[in-house]
């Protein structure tokens, strides 16, 4: 038998571990997806393939609750991601395109603060804050909290992109009689677009995903999809939860794939 040529980079077993890693990552999602198409009301026994639980999600006894929760999640995610992306774009411009200044390092620290503080601590602090200023808990408190912790997630791809854009482009624009504002809107912003789109998608998913902070700051009776699902799961995993999960899973994967394709396309141009 011919032996493989000696390859320094190859370590035996690493491929196996990589495959194991992917199996661990995908097996739970795959299993839930499969079982969401099980017609049986029991989650243990497989009966037959059916869309029963998907129909149940939209028309069943709990459908109104979940529809309202999904609507809340969507509205919050859109507003929070848009606001956070705008704030992050402006902040990145100041940090990366406005020279060195005293508040620069501190600003970077402030922007990444929500990433460093454990989520549960942010949740507690935000709850206490709204309590202390007697701000009534509800959709608004969720939205405000989401805007704050989405900022660093939007900021990361935006600043990464901006670092890749040479300052000479804006200098060339100014040399060609563009004002600072024109250099920003006509040159920097279009070049930034892939980063901004990635930042928005990232912030959107993070907002849609959040459970811990939402669970703390939401008002009584106000639910987002994750808190509604958590509430239902506490009573045991039911097939309709698996159908909702599969739907959410599909949404996440579609969005991430989209952002990946946008990112790749940009590199090849």
């Amino acid at each position: 038998m011919a032996t493989r040529p000696y390859d320094l980079r190859r370590y035996p077993g690493f491929l196996g571990i990589t495959i194991l890693c992917l199996v661990i990552l995908y097996a739970p999602l795959l299993v839930v997806t499969i079982y969401s198409f099980n017609s049986s009301p029991s989650i243990t026994n497989w009966e037959e393939f059916s869309f029963r639980w998907y129909v149940d999600v939209f028309t069943g006894p709990e459908s109104d609750k979940f529809k309202q929760a999904a609507w809340n999640s969507l509205i919050i995610a859109i507003i929070a991601a848009t606001t956070a992306t705008t704030i992050a774009t402006l902040a990145a411009t100041a940090v990366l395109r406005a020279g060195r200044f005293r508040l620069r390092t501190l600003s970077i620290g402030l922007i990444s603060l929500p990433l460093m503080v454990p989520e549960i601590v942010t949740a507690v602090a935000t709850l206490i804050f709204f309590n202390a200023i007697a701000f009534e808990r509800g959709l608004m408190t969720i939205l405000l909290a989401h805007i704050a912790f989405c900022i660093p997630f939007a900021y990361m791809p935006i600043s990464a992109r901006m670092q890749g854009i040479e300052a000479t482009y804006e200098q060339a624009a100014q040399d060609l009689y563009a004002t600072r504002r024109q250099a920003f809107t006509r040159i920097l912003l279009p070049l930034m677009m892939p980063g901004i789109v990635s930042g928005f998608i990232l912030a959107f998913i993070i907002s849609l995903d959040d459970f811990i902070i939402t669970n703390f700051v939401k008002g009584a009776g106000v639910e987002t999809l994750p808190t509604a699902i958590f509430g239902a799961v506490k009573q045991g995993i039911k097939p309709n939860i698996m159908a909702i999960s599969t739907l959410l899973l599909a949404v996440s994967i579609v969005m991430v794939t989209l952002s990946w394709i946008i990112g790749r396309k940009d590199k090849t141009s």
Binding site: E166, T168, Q171, A172, Q174, D175, L176, Y177, P190, L191
Partner: peptide, 27 residues
Amino acid sequence: PHKRPVNTVFQNYALFPHMTVLDNVGF
């Protein structure tokens, strides 16, 4: 810079990558 009637040819050209050649020259 935008108020000085001088123009620069940059070392790495700094052509705006998102614009056509014509729009670059007309900018």
